[in-house]
Design a protein around this nucleic acid. Structure first.
Lengths: 237, 237
DNA sequence: CGCCATCTTGAGGTCTATCAATTTCAGTGG
DNA sequence: CCACTGAAATTGATAGACCTCAAGATGGCG
């Protein structure tokens, strides 16, 4: 059975928490809130930005360009910490948006300071969380900078499947092609075409908002996917 | 006058360090080493990776694709901490390479643990350093994902000029066009063409390995550059 | 049934990669 | 002083990847 707190669950996979550590985390993470799809949790420029844990649903961090284009920087799934990197800065650089209805829990910015002072173990775990976020960003740079559309998309889907720890064949993807395009630096039209390419190649099957990857190894090979950067505890739970 | 330690210099711009903090840092950062251009400081897969401070010269973190293409993930200039995010993980995900002759100082991985335990101020500063790295990565994703070659290049040059705190008109750029291409996700040929486009537009002047941006504001406007993410202490020292 | 968002498909154009040839330029040695 | 060398930069031509616009198809939902 899981606790009330998704961050404790997540951290307990990585280390043994003392009762004091758990109390500290629980004290911080008690303000659970509901946000509906499309809602903005935190705007660009917000002063003294908080960070959030995401207990259920999907969210993302976004930036807008002057000409109206969007770039999605991170996709968040349940169990992740959102906006941790921006806590230290005086204002938020990205917008946090709910992509589905979500449950999330805001942490006031200065609670981080408290953790630093009271628990070096939790500090280390937060560091690791941030390091993983950074590894995801780097992998995305690889993806956008050096792979073509079809490969990019395949890589994206594989990453999400592993990050969601999805064991079943079929997985729900509650993101429309326009959002996928904004995440991968391509147009929604090209996402559509890349989808059908993958289908024609026999690597992908789709059904409404569900997809399944026919052969994980073959697809990983096709797009150069290597899960090491995800630091996954293992694919088979 | 500056101290022996570039990391102390850097941190002292952000906060007032106690004598204990300084001693702690000095104790860690005493193993200054020389590396020559092209040398690999740390390879992919290296176990229990260290991190480094860069006192002089240019370096980068790189990844190679199976087909031989390269993607440069980060460009480092003097004063930066390199590889901080990978300290927690069991193996290094990127290669650290000297782009010029450099002076750098390796920190053993477990020294981080010591900092966490002994100084919450230093912990916070390390967090901020990592957060800034992350902001750079996000801006690069914007750049690669949503801007075209000419704009990407202009943005890249502006960023470097500010990160180097260059006050003069002309700045040295010890990176060839092939490396710039690997950083921006484009071919070296296209870098060359983008360079001449910028020259023809009257935004850029080049002279050997030196460049100068004719009108910073106009160029910033041209490529959508906004220095906020650099968290610069100010452009005019 | 109609409405709306999303997805698909086609056509034409722009951006960028690749290949190859040429030029530039800083060394280097005669 | 000049020729030679090799790395880097430039330039042209061609092909491929991707975008944009626009029209149609699909599918959930009141």
């Amino acid at each position: 059975m899981s606790t009330q707190s998704c961050i404790i669950d997540r951290f307990e996979e990585l280390a043994v928490l003392s009762e004091g550590d758990k109390r500290l985390l629980e004290g911080l993470e008690k303000d659970l809130r509901q946000y509906s799809a499309g809602q903005v949790l935190r705007s660009i420029g917000e002063k003294n930005p908080a960070f959030y844990t995401l207990r259920s649903g999907w969210a993302c961090s976004v930036r807008l360009l002057p000409d109206g284009q969007r770039q999605i920087l991170e996709i968040f799934v349940d169990g992740q910490i959102m906006g941790l990197a921006e806590v230290g800065s005086d204002q938020a650089l990205t917008e946090l948006v709910a992509l589905t209805d979500i449950e999330a829990c805001p942490f006031p910015a200065d609670s981080l300071q408290q953790v630093f002072e009271e628990s070096s173990l939790l500090t280390q775990l937060l560091f690791m969380s941030m390091a993983r976020d950074q590894a995801l960003l780097m992998e995305r740079i690889m993806n956008i900078g050096r792979r073509k559309g079809v490969e990019r998309l395949a890589h994206f889907l594989l990453e999400l499947k592993i990050r969601k720890r999805c064991q079943e064949d079929s997985m729900e993807l509650p993101l429309n092609q326009s959002i996928i395009g904004d995440a991968l630096g391509m147009s929604s039209v090209h996402v559509s075409r890349s989808m059908s390419s993958l289908r024609k190649l026999g690597l992908l099957r789709t059904n409404g908002s569900h997809f399944s990857i026919v052969d994980m190894d073959e697809t990983a090979n096709f797009c150069g996917f290597c899960p090491k950067y995800l630091n996954a505890r293992s694919t088979r739970h």
